[in-house]
Design a protein around this nucleic acid. Sequence first.
DNA 1: TCACGGAATATTTTT
DNA 2: TATTCCGTGA
Length: 657
Amino acid sequence: MSKNSSLPLNRRFQIQYDTELNSAQLEAVMATNGPLLVIAGAGSGKTRTLTYRVARLVEEGVAPASILLLTFTRKAAQQMLQRASDLLDRRCDNVAGGTFHSFGNLILRRYAPALGLASNFSILDRVDAEALISMLRKEAGDTAASHSLPRKHTLANIFSRTVNKMMPLEDVVYDDYPHMTGELEAIDKIFQAYHRYKKENNFLDFDDLLVYQLKLLKNNPDLRHRISSAYQYVMVDEYQDTNAIQARILYLLTGSNQNIMVVGDDSQSIYAFRGANFRNIMQFPEMFPGARIITLEENYRSVQPVLNLTNSIIEQAKEKYSKQLFTRKTGGNLPLLVDARNENEQSLFVVDRIQQLHQQGIALNQIAVLFRAGFHSFDLEIELTRSQLPFIKVGGFKFVESAHIKDVLAHLRVISNPYDRISWYRILLLIAKIGPASARKIYESVVGEGVGLAGLQTVEMKSAAAAGLKRLKDLFSMLDTHEMPLEKIGETVIDYYLPILKDRYDDHPKRAKDLEQLVAIMERYSSLVKFLTDMALEPPNTAVDDTFTTGKPQEDRLVLSTIHSAKGLEWHTVFIIWALDGRFPSSHALIKDGELEEELRLMYVAATRACENLYFTYPNQVYDRSLGIVLNHPSRFIDMMPDDILEKQSAGPQSWY
DNA sequence: TCACGGAATATTTTT
DNA sequence: TATTCCGTGA
């Protein structure tokens, strides 16, 4: 059927919006012009609403490329646009979508010179940034009198928080790392050096992608106008987890038409520790006067007893948009709080209950165990393995962050940027008999020659290191042909690297398989720079673990996850382990009010993942070394719940054995 | 200057 | 669990 404006109004649209959406969702989809804030409660069809809204705009004739959808992860954007395409047609593929960071990369590659930056900057991922910080830390440590500088990981956190909260370093250290105030001077020195180094070497870390993006929009009205008029409609997902910089970027990005829609749930803001400010969502109506506010309150996920409990949890929050979630899903069991005598008894209870559920026909991938911190599941993992229950742990190390992948990538990065000191150090330290001192000498010699990669050929080592260095020289002279396709370069580097891999890692067969994966990914690229950028910005999201366990059917694996990684997901049955006061909320959060609130929201996010069954467990006698006391109460967020909201039980052998 | 081993230590995570 | 850090000996 051809489309034609003379058709009756309802025939102009392929999608039956009014029957496929509830009234609040429909309102949010149809309100396409002007600022709009959608408060979307847990399980209220937020993704559905965004998807239909994209489709609606396209159906109305808005050019897809002038719609911008910003999300928390690039995967979320891909999924939504895919669903919009399925709903309507391929036109939705042309909608611009991604994260604030990938969008920043896009416009900075084009307009970097306006900031005095080179367009071919390299992106430092977290591992790279930490490697650089570690280097600077060592240099500072040599001169500083103090012996107890924070670890590189901690330093990276401090720096990132400083940038994302737009606060002075001093304040961040005083507020969040009070025990390190003694080292403030040294920390600041490393921070300055870090900045200087990035500038001099044309490196941008993740935070810089936001910082420079904001700078660009702020200082260049012409460019701002050009960019903002290219995107007539802007939508932002997970707005509660944006930070101060992102809010300002958004403000500048939204042109005079102010066709901006943000979606979020203030009750699910759980990223303050890295600079997110959930008040952004509260302040949206002030930033965009006249903003319409729509609240999605019907929950399609959980049964009433689960919802009763989650509503009771979030009632304890001091500062929030009020909303009352309701569900039409009837039946369901009361959530259960189980106390165990120790960690192992907790694990045994969970294993036993999962086996029961599995026998009742619940698929393992419909069951999840959630926890506050990654190491909380160690004991459980042992018991699951012993019981031969297959599981997958999400979160944790990513494919591209693992050492062996980074090793190979470092060789490629040196080809791309011959003066990349971090990568040079990395590959040189892999060679036997070369340590930091030799690496430094070699690097300085390469830079001194000023002829790029070829500078390595003239470096001579007299010591035992010469043989290893010769192999590296041979590798790079072999690669000098720029005619090679990317995957061929990759294979050559890997051939060189395999002996090193075997020597360093006992589990080298597993890691070698990852390297094969890497070559497969390289086949899709023709440009080395593009490949390296994507590896930093849009890495394949498979965990290392996933690449070699593909033999097992995915659908039959239990899910273990940190609560942060579980955001947006749902399961038939959810276990929340370590619901122990002092662990959850973490004892770290007890000192500060704001942090305790965030812990509460985290508990809310965890509990709202459950559709039918919800279990809380906690070990009852845990000595906390840092506090010097025994923890023996359930999490304060659920401790006082009445029995008709939360049932209590002991995990002692007599009650379930 | 480098390699090795043992001890200490770890909130949460995306880009 | 796994990674980082530091001291020691070659």
